[in-house]
């Protein structure tokens, strides 16, 4: 569960959103102000995967190798949220999904209370990876 990576967030107190199948959870171009945790269901980011990215095509029969499939417990487009101002790829509900949204600045503030280096370092690593993926994609 990727949500375990953020143990200081009490997910119980954040509002849930139910997204019907084939609807967008994230639309490319949306500002990365919110981080989404997939609480239940399966979501798909079409054509978002590149070499080296771990994903689980078996979860969804129609998913191709270029899609990223998210199972319950996943943080959606985490790298893009950390590295970019706007999401680069759509994330669609493959089946009915329950998602929890949390404000990016809230996470940052919680992190900074404990150590001020962790957040910028995470963003910098995510930016390096995202930039590299974009370069490979363009090539």
């Amino acid at each position: 569960m990727q949500s375990d990576l953020l143990p200081f967030i009490d997910w119980r107190y954040h509002p849930r959103q139910v997204i019907p199948p084939r609807e967008r959870i994230i639309t490319a171009g949306d500002p990365t102000e919110m981080l989404f945790l997939l609480e239940s269901g399966v979501a798909l980011a079409p054509n978002a995967a590149v070499r080296g990215h771990k994903h689980f095509p078996d979860l969804v029969k129609k998913a191709n190798m270029n899609d990223i499939t998210y199972a319950a417990g996943a943080l959606l487009s985490l790298l893009e949220m950390l590295a970019l101002d706007a999401y680069r790829h759509d994330v669609l509900a493959h089946e009915e999904c329950r998602v929890i949204g949390i404000d990016r600045l809230e996470i940052k503030a919680m992190w900074n209370r404990e150590n001020r280096m962790a957040w910028p370092l995470s963003c910098s690593i995510a930016a390096a990876i995202t930039q590299r993926r974009q370069t490979r994609f363009l090539l």
């Binding site: 990727q2 790298l79 950390l82 990876i129």
Partner: peptide, 9 residues
């Protein structure tokens, strides 16, 4: 968390 991010490289 940081190590998790790095493993996505």
């Amino acid at each position: 968390f940081i190590r998790h991010i790095a493993r996505l490289a």
